[in-house]
């Protein structure tokens, strides 16, 4: 049987352990309801190394590996890259000639692929993103696609 004294000792140890974990975890604060929506897409021209940048929204990255995934090794870079950030913070990227829209989520110093949305078998001719929260609108000539981070929204 556990005596009263042992019970108190156990209680004290538990309290100290709990306090230790609480301190170790550090301060915690979450801001909710954040709207990341970029009002207008970024149209960026890749340099010879595949770097693109939009100083207005403050984003810069390299599209070489994305282009390899879309078109294969040794394929030429597209003339322009179209990018827009959705309200929930995902980056939607495509380019003329691409069959897909690539959805990325931002991580520490990187963009992680979240989803590949196939939109055109013959390739997009003149794609453009519009912000139409809650979804992202992709237009290409007379065609319209409504996109979410998970794929086509219908």
């Amino acid at each position: 049987m556990v005596s009263m004294k042992q019970f108190r000792l156990l209680g004290n140890i538990s309290a100290v352990t709990l306090l230790f974990f609480a301190v170790a975890c550090g301060p915690s604060l979450t801001l909710t309801g954040v709207d990341y929506a970029q009002p207008i897409e970024s149209v960026m021209i890749p340099d010879q190394d595949g770097n693109v940048e939009d100083v207005r929204v403050g984003v810069r990255f390299n599209v070489t590996s994305l282009n390899v995934k879309e078109r294969g090794e040794d394929s030429p870079l597209p003339n322009e890259i179209r990018l827009i950030r959705s309200r929930d913070g995902y980056y939607f990227i495509t380019a003329p000639g691409y069959q897909n829209v690539y959805v990325f989520k931002s991580d520490e110093g990187s963009l992680e692929l979240e989803e590949i949305i196939e939109v055109s078998e013959e390739g997009l001719s003149n794609p453009a993103f519009n912000q139409r929260a809650p979804h992202v609108q992709l237009i290409d000539g007379p065609n319209e696609y409504r996109l979410t981070k998970d794929g086509l929204a219908n």
Partner: peptide, 12 residues
């Protein structure tokens, strides 16, 4: 329909 599908970027 065309106006509906106009690019915001192009408008700017």
């Amino acid at each position: 329909v065309q106006a509906q599908f106009q690019s915001d970027f192009q408008i700017k």
